[in-house]
Amino acid sequence: MRTTKQKKLLAQKIGIIFPLLLGALFAGFPVFWMLVSSFKSNSEIFEYPPRIITENFSFDAYATILGDPVKVRFFINSYVVSLSVTMLTLIVAILAAYAFSRYEFRFKNPLNMIIVSVQAVPPITLLIPYFGLMVTLRLYNTYWALILTYMVFTLPYAIIMMTGYFNTLPKELDEAVKLDGGNAITALWRVLVPISIPGIVSIGIYTFMIAWNEYLFALTLTRTEDMRTVPIGIQLLMGQHSYEWNEMMAMSILGCIPVLLLFLFFQRYFIGGLTGGSVKG
């Protein structure tokens, strides 16, 4: 009796593990392929039949990327833009969310509606006017063009999430600070913000990811090589001379490292924060 039960359990386990492995192959193989290709030489990439593990394992592609000031500049640009967007978004979102959560003011509801509906405006609709606007404001081909544009896309989500977070914190906290002689600003920065760190981290990561990965506006609002970000840089490699696939793969690996690290370190916040937002809306 017992052995048949165990057999059944084993069969069930295999029934789960087999499709799991199949799915993992579907999800993970392309990523694995990117990694092994980045260690090959470019001629080896086109060898047929393809080699899974390279014979002359080398970091040459990485060295080429990191030794080229133009390509290093792509990374610097991406870091500058993404970090600025993240910092500014968080500051503005915290202040706005505090106002939304703790004060009543005129136009609060229509303002809220607008913030929600801004999320639904397709980027391609905003592209042409932004292009015109940035040229007029002489911000075309600057960091600011990208930072301001990205904030339009990151702020609505950040404000909505942050307001939700503050709403869960009791108002007695603020009142306690006021009794101790502090004002609204001390209440916000000394009490509310420190308690909200998990929420702030998840919003911050989400914002960073949007900015780091953005392509359409980075392509349109910058022109010279010294202003391009990593996603555009990867694409530029495709056009340049011949196709240097190993370099492209190496640059892709380098380009996804920040997001990958953020994800691995903050997995818990990340998934919780994201599903909270998407599911509750």
């Binding site: 799915g23 993992a24 999800a27 993970g28 392309p30 990523v31 392929w33 990117m34 290709s37 990439i45 780091w212 990965n213 392509y215 990593v230 996603p231 555009i232 990867i234 694409q235 490699l237 495709m238 696939w245 492209m248 793969m249 892709s252 380009g255 996804c256 997001v259 990958l260 994800f263 691995l264 997995q267």
Partner: peptide, 21 residues
């Protein structure tokens, strides 16, 4: 983690990777 991987890559990376494959 393996299953989430595709989601962690920029579209630019996804595009060149699949062009290669």
């Amino acid at each position: 983690v393996v299953y989430i991987l595709p989601w962690l890559f920029t579209v630019a990376i996804i595009a060149v990777l699949w062009r290669l494959m």
